[in-house]
Nucleic acid binder design. Structure first.
Lengths: 231, 231
DNA sequence: CTGCGGCGTTAAGATAGCGTTAAGATTTAA
DNA sequence: TTAAATCTTAACGCTATCTTAACGCCGCAG
């Protein structure tokens, strides 16, 4: 299982090989671009989680590469360079690089810095908290919290009840056949008489959501959730 | 006009002075903490944009400081250390540091790396202003100090108990699946039967937070912390 | 009217999952 | 090193949940 995708922009064959081995062992998916032009193209098409960039490319100044990539993306860029001059470091960092390692570098350190970049991604990624809340009449399902409320009072549901309710809610107004529901809830067709169980679960759900009757029966076909206010 | 706020956690007077001068010239607002304890407290109260941390503090291991700060905040941490050993670098980065500079460092490079950290902040936009103290009913967690109080009386928790409690607290009201909890607490999937252990830890936590029942079980799914006052 | 199919409801047995305790294993501190 | 704290594991009772069975209701067709 891969831990993330890495784009290596590097012309030196030796270092390409070193990177390949290192990334492979650590279970990263990666691509290698041997020059700036391909590097920029791949940054756009491959959309990696991290870019490792050698500043000393044959066809373009490294700083330019950073700027070009930054013109369309915030993908973390870790610069790896033989130039130890501070001027280079600073201009690379100010151009938009996230980190700067000088050759020869320790592969363990490189991996650690890749982890830092990836961690940051997942942090900021998870922060886009989608308040995915479903409401219908006085029924409320907070998918993020995994809780269900009726008249703003929490109702405790079992795992299957919750699954069933979500299924109906996500298909508000649509009739779901018995077979479809059974497949969604009892993924593996275990021997149980799910047709019968389903009847019981619907009963229990209706009891717990007592207010209105949200769940309509379609005899011989299945169930559907009604949109409150309409019938 | 200042470009951002910096907290320097450093005990060496010489370097303190160097930092002061550098930051002042570059128009940063800053504060200096001479040891880990004050550093952590200021990280919480001052809520700076960047933390510059010396690993070699007198009162606490630097890695510990990183972990403590990370328990309540994602403020970028730039480590500055005399230790050039790769082990140190990697463990600091993996503990949550964002960057690592070895002494003696070039001040221009430090400034450039501060700019990188600040730039990132403006990218991600909203800063996750987390209070360093969490309260819920008569439960109180002081992330900065790593202490837990029930009815204003301190309760001693083990490392895992604390981690588990923080996890639940940070997701107040949310159902956390067993798998998610296990991944967060036993990062590396060591062979242990964490499902079983989890049950024991929850029991122990409940015993120690005896007052109300903060932790609700969702059978077959996981656990969640209840907001006191609601049901 | 009567029989039948499908559904709703209730209750009881089976079962999986949880809470709890305690004893070994392991780690940490002295 | 020993001692203490902590973590892991096993065992067992218990509860929530799931499944199944039974029965009554309704609508429809004969």
């Amino acid at each position: 299982m891969n831990k993330g995708t890495v784009l290596v922009i590097e012309d030196d064959k030796m270092i390409q090989n070193l990177m390949s081995t290192t990334l492979e062992i650590s279970n990263y998916a990666y691509q290698i671009a041997p020059n700036a032009e391909q590097g920029i193209l791949k940054a756009a098409s491959y959309n990696p989680d991290v870019i490792i960039l050698d500043l000393g490319l044959p066809d373009m100044d490294g700083i330019e590469v950073i700027k070009k990539v930054r013109s369309f993306s915030n993908i973390p860029i870790i610069v790896v360079s033989a130039r130890i001059d501070n001027e280079d470091k600073i201009s690379a960092l100010d151009a938009g690089a996230d980190d700067y390692l000088t050759k020869p570098f320790n592969t363990e350190e490189l991996l650690a810095r890749i982890r830092v970049a990836l961690r940051r991604k997942t942090y900021t990624g998870e922060e886009t908290v989608q308040t995915s809340v479903f409401t219908n009449g006085n029924l409320k399902i907070d998918y993020a919290q995994g809780c269900v409320y009726v008249d703003d009072k929490e109702v405790h549901l079992t795992a299957i009840e919750y699954k069933l309710l979500c299924l109906l809610a996500k298909n508000l107004g649509k009739v779901l056949t018995h077979n479809y529901i059974k497949k969604e809830i009892w993924l593996d067709d275990n021997g149980c008489d799910s047709q019968l169980s389903l009847r019981v679960f619907v009963t229990n759900l209706r009891k717990k959501l007592n207010a209105a009757d949200y769940i309509k029966t379609h005899i011989g076909i299945g169930y559907r959730m009604l949109q409150q206010g309409k019938n």
